[in-house]
Amino acid sequence: MNPSPPLLDVRELVVRYGAAVAVDRVSFTLRAGETLALTGPSGCGKSSTAAAVLRLRRPAGGEVWFEGRELTRLGERELRPLRPAMQPVFQDPYGSLSPRQRIRAAIAEPLRVQGRWDAVTGPARVAELLETVGLDPAHGDRLPHELSGGQCQRAGIARALASDPRLLVLDEPVSALDPSVRAGILNLLAGLQERRGLGYLFISHDMALVRHFADRTAEMRAGRIERIV
């Protein structure tokens, strides 16, 4: 019996900023339910790789296959129905949410944009998402600055989950949080992965954290993957 194809298959990816090469022929695979960490020093190409995977930046070369579809040559109209399945969670829990938008509205926004908002069932869906990430539904009435950093990151994760993704790209998701809060966020992510079979592309410079959280680690330097362990 043949194994299932990878959720994400990156082949010879190249990202350039002008003449500078930020990502130089990077290749890796990620399966559903697996966490692959990209690690390495600042400026080594981790976040540029993530941006290209999410098609927030068009690669200069190579291929990105997601659930059997090659993304790099797709136009925005063709990408639009695929974007909900690939969601980012960013480093700055406050910067990823509008400071003037209440948490409830921020979580509902992806549903509205994707045409999946229902005035009857939508509020219950938002409350369910808040509970899923360990927040009281009453937190939905607050603005981001009225939450702690850990609570705000949980709200960001709830917003990502609203799209029913199969891949989360986690770009330093706990590095801006107090050490006492990090374990709770990592435990939340681990539980979500176990229940939902999510694939995680986990970007971090913290090797101790990566060894604890990731199934495999791709070590990057100067735009290249030196080894995957």
Rank of each mutant, 00 (worst) to 15 (best):
G197D: 01
V23H: 10
A52H: 11
P84K: 07
L54T: 09
E226I: 14
E194T: 05
A85R: 15
R195W: 12
P144G: 02
V229Q: 07
R221F: 12
G40M: 11
R195P: 07
D9G: 03
L198Q: 03
L189V: 06
G61N: 02
L111W: 06
P165M: 02
L188I: 09
L7R: 02
A214V: 03
H145M: 10
L201M: 06
G40T: 13
P123A: 02
A85Y: 05
A85K: 15
M220F: 11
E70I: 06
R211F: 03
A85E: 12
C44S: 13
G184Q: 09
T39G: 08
V181T: 09
D178V: 00
F90S: 10
T39K: 10
A160E: 06
G45R: 01
P123R: 02
R69C: 06
P88R: 06
L192I: 08
A105Y: 00
R11N: 13
Q101W: 12
L130M: 09
L74C: 13
G199W: 14
V229P: 04
L201F: 05
V120Q: 11
K46D: 10
D136L: 04
G68M: 02
N2R: 12
A106Q: 00
G150K: 10
M1I: 14
P88Q: 05
D24A: 14
A158K: 12
R142A: 12
G149K: 05
P165Y: 13
V210R: 00
I225T: 01
L143Y: 15
T35G: 02
S204D: 08
G33M: 05
E109G: 03
R116E: 04
A85S: 15
D141T: 09
G115T: 04
P173K: 01
G18V: 01
I203P: 03
F66L: 13
T35H: 02
E146R: 12
P41A: 15
V133Y: 14
A19C: 03
L198F: 07
R69N: 08
T72C: 09
R102Q: 14
G45W: 08
D24P: 08
A155F: 03
D215H: 13
P5N: 11
G150H: 10
E226V: 15
I103W: 10
A105F: 02
